[in-house]
Nucleic acid binder design. Structure first.
Lengths: 190, 190
DNA sequence: ACCTGAACACCGTTCAAGT
DNA sequence: ACCTGAACACCGTTCAAGT
C-alpha cells in the first residue's frame, strides 16, 4: 500500500468516472485508496494539479486517427477527436474546460489545431483567433451535450433527443467561416 | 434590518464584484448583511437559485442599444451586448456560464438570438445550431478574456495585451459561416 | 519516501425556537 | 414574516510525528 503519483491519478480518473467531478474530493480519493487525505499531498502539490493531470490523462486516452493531409479535414478531425475523448469519461468536458480555465495543462488540442491551421494560407494573425473559435465551439458544445446526456441517463423524463449531428453542423458552420478567410479559396468544398 | 429578496440579490451582486465568485458564499453574504447564513434561506431556496438571480441581474443591467433591422447586424449586436454585460462585473462570465450550465435562468440571450436568426431565411433546423454556436463563442471568448483581464489587473507580470478586437474577428468568422447557409446570399457583405 | 493524526479555517443546508 | 443558534455532514490544506 505504498503509492506513486500514477496510482493516484489513475484512481482519481476512476473516481471521476464512477461518482462525477463534484465527488472527486481529496478526502474521498484518500478513502478510496485506503489512505489519509494528507498522504495525497506527497504525490501532488494540490487539487488543481491533480485535476490537471487527470484532464491530460482523459485527453491522452482519447482516439487518435491517422492524420489527414488537407488542413481543413485535419482541423475538423482534431475537433471530433477532442469531443470524443471528453465524452468518454463522466464530466470529462467539465473537467477539461475547468483545467483549461485555470491555465494548467490540456494544451495539446490548442497546439495541434495551431499546427493544422498554420499551413492553411490564413493571415497569421487570424490563426490564433480561428483556433480559439474552434475550441470555444468544441468545449461549449460538448459541455452542453454531456450535461444533457448525463441528465437524460440519470434523469426521469426523456428529454428531446438532441441530435449528435448538431456537433457536425455547428463545426461545419465555423469551418465555413474560417475557409472564407483563406485567400486562394477554390470555391466551396462540401 | 429586515430584508427582502431584492436586498439579498443586490448585496450578492456587490459581494461578487468586490470579492469574486469564489468568495460569494452564503456565510459571507450573511455576514455582509449582518445576519445568520440560515436567514438567507428565507429569501432564496438555495445557493443555485441565488446565483441564477444574480446572473439575471448582471444581464438585465447590461447595455441595450436600439435594435437594428438587418438580421445579421442584429445578431452581432446581441453578442456584443452580452459580452459587455458580463465584462461589467467581476467573474460575470464565469457566473453566467455556470448558471447556464446548471439549467437555470439566463435564457434572454438565447431567445433574442433565436428571434434575430429566425427571419434570416435560414433552414429552420439550423437556427438552434447557429444560436448555440454563437453563444458558445461569446461565452468561451468572454470567459477567457475576463480571466486574462483579471489576472493581468491583479497579477505581477504584464501579459500579452490580447487584442479586444479578437472578439470582433472571431465573431465575424462565425457570422460568415452562418451567412453562407442563407440561400439567397447576395454576395459578401463585409 | 510515504504515511498518520490532529488540527485550522472554512463550506451549504436544516430545523427547532424565538419575536 | 423574518431571524437566531446550534447542529450535521462535509471541504482543502498544513504539519509534526511516526516507519
Amino acid at each position: 500500500m505504498r503509492y506513486h503519483r500514477t496510482d493516484v491519478v489513475d484512481r482519481a480518473l476512476r473516481v471521476l468516472d464512477e461518482y462525477g467531478l463534484a465527488d472527486l474530493t481529496m478526502r474521498r480519493l484518500g478513502t478510496e485508496l485506503g489512505v489519509q487525505p494528507s498522504a495525497l499531498y506527497h504525490h501532488v502539490a494540490n487539487k488543481q494539479e491533480l485535476l490537471a493531470a487527470v484532464a491530460d490523462e482523459v485527453l491522452a486516452r482519447g482516439p487518435r486517427r491517422s492524420p489527414l493531409a488537407a488542413w481543413d479535414a485535419r482541423a475538423e478531425q482534431i475537433c471530433v477527436e477532442l469531443r470524443e475523448a471528453m465524452l468518454a469519461y463522466r464530466d470529462g468536458a467539465e473537467l477539461v474546460a475547468a483545467v483549461r480555465a485555470f491555465g494548467l495543462g490540456a494544451r495539446a488540442p490548442y497546439d495541434e489545431l495551431t499546427t493544422a491551421l498554420a499551413g492553411a494560407g490564413l493571415d497569421p494573425d487570424l490563426v490564433p483567433v480561428a483556433v480559439a473559435t474552434l475550441l470555444h465551439f468544441v468545449f461549449g458544445h460538448t459541455l452542453d451535450e454531456q450535461t444533457q446526456l448525463q441528465a437524460a441517463s440519470a434523469g426521469a423524463v426523456a428529454e428531446e433527443p438532441r441530435e449528435t449531428s448538431d456537433f457536425a453542423l455547428g463545426l461545419a458552420l465555423v469551418m465555413a467561416g474560417i475557409r472564407q478567410q483563406v485567400p486562394a479559396a477554390d470555391g466551396l468544398r462540401r
